[in-house]
Simulated assay, not measured.
Amino acid sequence: MQAAEKFSFELCKETADWLLGHTKQRPQIAIVCGSGLGLLADNLKNQESFQYTDIPNFPHSTVPGHEGRLIFGELQGKPCVCMKGRFHLYEGYPLWKVTFPIRVFKLLGIKILLVTNAAGALEDSYHIGDFMVIRDHINLLGLAGQNPLLGPNEERFGARFPALSDAYDRKICALALQIARRLGYASFVKEGVYCMVGGPNFESIAEARLLHLLGADAVGMSTAAEVVVARHCGLRVFGLSLITNKVTKEYDAQEVVDHLHVLEVSQRQASVLQRFLTELVGQLEWIDSDPEDKETACQNGT
């Protein structure tokens, strides 16, 4: 049986019903925590936590820095659910399984998905520790025919051919950039294009040069597939990359990246990222108003 044939609406509903039956919380915001970025999940109020291994049909996280817990709770008074660890194609999961939680979130009643990741900088002006608000992405796997929407379309989630020209919600992005200015983070909060590759190896020099020529500012091994499914489901999406390393584009460079270094940078910046995203979640009620009105209100102390 092909991987795409194993996906079904009923499978997602079974998992969503199990979760709804084991918690009274009804989240509207879902947050996917990337490598080493689980501190945000730990700070939810009124927590209810489930190990991935206990949730029916859920994959198991196998990567260091991805703890493998689904945490329900409140952030800034808003009901949220956090994935403390995600899944990847390189772990051996087909993309329908990698993105399975996103469809479950839709059935839980989620309206907004926040996705974070650790990424390598292709853009020369980026520095280690910078944040990149994702304006758009290049889904190399999708361009090569590896797409989580392969197979029969499930109309109960969305239409056959979803548009991605608005994949990342522009109002939420604008709000995030304004929050960065207000918090004094503007010097290290950028806006750019994320590229998803399959991994698990880091990019060769020739590959890094190619990705930069294609217009990618940062590269990683997640996120784009989740965003494709989220938009197919009609969720609003905000994406944020933590720049954990500079991708080598020169043959005489001495730097060699490894996953432990990625986790070290993630842990160093985790508290700053937590503050940034906590502030964003707290102000999401402003996303349907004029972002300039929000900035003025903040300046006036309201």
Rank of each mutant, 00 (worst) to 15 (best):
M1K: 08
M1E: 13
Q2F: 12
A3W: 12
A4N: 12
K6T: 12
E10Y: 12
L11M: 06
L11R: 04
C12K: 04
K13A: 10
E14R: 04
A16V: 09
L19C: 04
L20Y: 00
H22K: 14
T23D: 06
K24E: 15
Q25C: 08
G34Q: 04
G34C: 05
S35E: 09
S35G: 02
L37N: 02
A41W: 04
K45N: 12
N46H: 07
I55H: 01
F58K: 06
H60R: 12
H60S: 10
P64D: 10
G65C: 07
H66R: 12
E67C: 06
R69I: 14
R69S: 09
L70T: 00
G73W: 04
G77Q: 12
K78D: 03
K84Q: 14
R86Y: 03
H88L: 11
H88N: 03
Y93R: 11
P94A: 09
P94L: 10
P94F: 14
P101Q: 05
F105D: 02
G109N: 05
I112H: 01
L114T: 00
T116K: 02
N117Y: 01
A118K: 03
A121E: 06
L122A: 01
L122E: 06
D124E: 11
Y126W: 11
D130R: 03
F131Y: 01
I134E: 06
D136A: 12
H137V: 13
H137F: 11
H137K: 15
N139Y: 07
L140E: 10
L143A: 10
A144I: 10
Q146V: 15
Q146L: 15
P148T: 01
P148Y: 01
G151Q: 13
P152M: 14
E154P: 00
R156I: 14
R156Y: 04
G158R: 11
R160P: 00
P162H: 03
A167F: 05
A167E: 07
D169P: 00
K171A: 14
I172V: 13
C173P: 00
C173L: 15
L175E: 08
A176T: 10
A176Q: 10
R182V: 13
V189N: 06
K190Y: 12
C195K: 04
M196N: 04
M196K: 01
V197L: 13
N201C: 15
F202R: 11
S204A: 14
S204W: 07
I205E: 04
E207C: 05
L211I: 07
L211S: 05
H212G: 07
L214C: 02
A218L: 11
T223K: 08
V229A: 10
V229M: 08
A230H: 02
R231D: 05
R231Y: 01
R236T: 10
L240W: 01
I243N: 00
I243Q: 02
N245T: 07
A253L: 11
Q254S: 06
H261Q: 15
V262I: 08
Q269A: 11
S271P: 00
Q274G: 01
Q274L: 15
Q274V: 06
E279Q: 13
W286V: 09
D288T: 12
E292L: 14
K294S: 03
E295Y: 04
A297S: 14
N300M: 15
T302S: 07
